[in-house]
Design a binder for these strands. Structure first.
Lengths: 217, 217
DNA sequence: CCAAAAGTGTTAAAGCTACACCCATGG
DNA sequence: CCATGGGTGTAGCTTTAACACTTTTGG
């Protein structure tokens, strides 16, 4: 079920960059390889493309397997060759954006999954470090002109949580007042009139995205 | 050598969206299919992926075959399945930007190539109409924050020619003075001090791109 | 009453849009 | 001298960036 067992080497694989924001830092879901090649390294989850279905639905199925959720934002990133140094396989990479609090990791010891901070990655199998870097770059760019952040947050969230998502992916802080103005002006989110208490300070308003499907501005 | 002959149906194909600006309108290079499926329809040029090389270099080789030029801007677009309705093949689409005056079309009658205005396309084989539309959308977006237009123009060009490229791909006209200011401020092009006479009016300055490699702003 | 994060408005700078007249050439 | 496209500058508007104080809560 996982990436590039050797009998797949002449075939097409689907690999997933599953991103979630944990503690204000973007994290990626990796699995621990128990098979050669690249045994004992961490790698992006993936699997053989099942030719009886589309690439997209192969990716979706794998995503559900790994996260337990099926209503995530999923987008094709690119297709590479030379994933496996010596072999002649092609891998179609997708990225998915998750609210990590809803993700239920598979509990198995074989191909055990775990979250890793994308800014502190070990050396991964194949070219996976590079695939992840490109995914983050694409996501950060797309945040600026779409509502895809909806997929990284729970249904109700504070403006602070939303800002944390943007800052984590852009890798830099932004002014709180300007951020708030831009988001509200953008017309993608609205206050729902509830507040959330969270410690010894003023409670925060809760917001939702008007649409929980991709909107490109 | 061309797209999706039936023996390729379980395999990976590379297809090319080769774009050139002709008479102020974006054109795409198509080939006339002489084989089933979709016999006698026009289609994007392409071929089987040769597994002994990377996808990128397969695409480059095909591009040289079709255009005679190898120093073009070439970028992966996406990978689709269901190109061929019934089959289980994947096709990796690339787009290339050409100065059509340098392109030398293959002269063969089999799979005869020709340029088509992308705004007046007939119904093409497979999902090719849609692939072309997405290529144009991507290119128009990328013109705004890169120098890829260098690949659509000869080495020396007038600002009018450059503007024609932008207008053709955006599908709308822009103010001549503002366009000039933005381009010169962008620092991607420079005047070479020569002019070109071209009819009963003042001669135009010639410009070049400072770099003839992709620069993303 | 203290600490902590939420909430809010204004000003300056930069960038974008709209717009009209003169210039060099060929016929 | 006329027609054609090349070349240039400015003013208003919109967008972005910078910046500090008050509010509500828990302890």
């Amino acid at each position: 079920m996982n990436q590039t067992k050797s009998e797949l080497s002449t075939d097409v694989a689907v690999i997933l960059v599953i991103i979630g924001i944990i503690g204000g830092a973007p994290h990626v879901l990796l699995v621990h390889r128990t098979a050669t090649p690249e045994q004992n390294k961490w790698a992006l989850p993936g699997g053989k493309w099942n030719k009886s279905e589309s690439l997209e639905s192969s990716a979706e199925k794998k995503l559900v397997q790994e996260t337990g959720i099926d209503t995530l934002y999923l987008e094709q990133l690119f297709t590479t060759t030379g994933l496996d140094d010596e072999s002649s396989s092609a891998a179609v990479a997708y990225f998915a954006l998750t609210d990590f609090t809803r993700v239920i990791l598979r509990a198995e010891e074989e191909w055990k999954p775990d979250w890793f901070n994308v800014n502190e990655l070990p050396e991964l199998a194949f070219n996976n470090n590079q695939v992840i870097r490109q995914a983050i770059t694409r996501i950060a760019a797309k945040l600026q002109y779409s509502n895809i952040a909806y997929s990284l947050l729970p249904e109700e969230f504070t403006l602070r949580q939303l800002q944390d998502v943007y800052e984590a992916l852009e890798g830099q802080t932004v002014d709180r007042r300007n951020f708030r103005k831009k988001m509200l002006a953008g017309g993608l989110i609205e206050a729902i009139g509830k507040t959330r208490r969270d410690g010894a300070h003023r409670p925060a308003q809760l917001y939702t995205f008007l649409q929980r499907e991709a909107v490109i501005l």
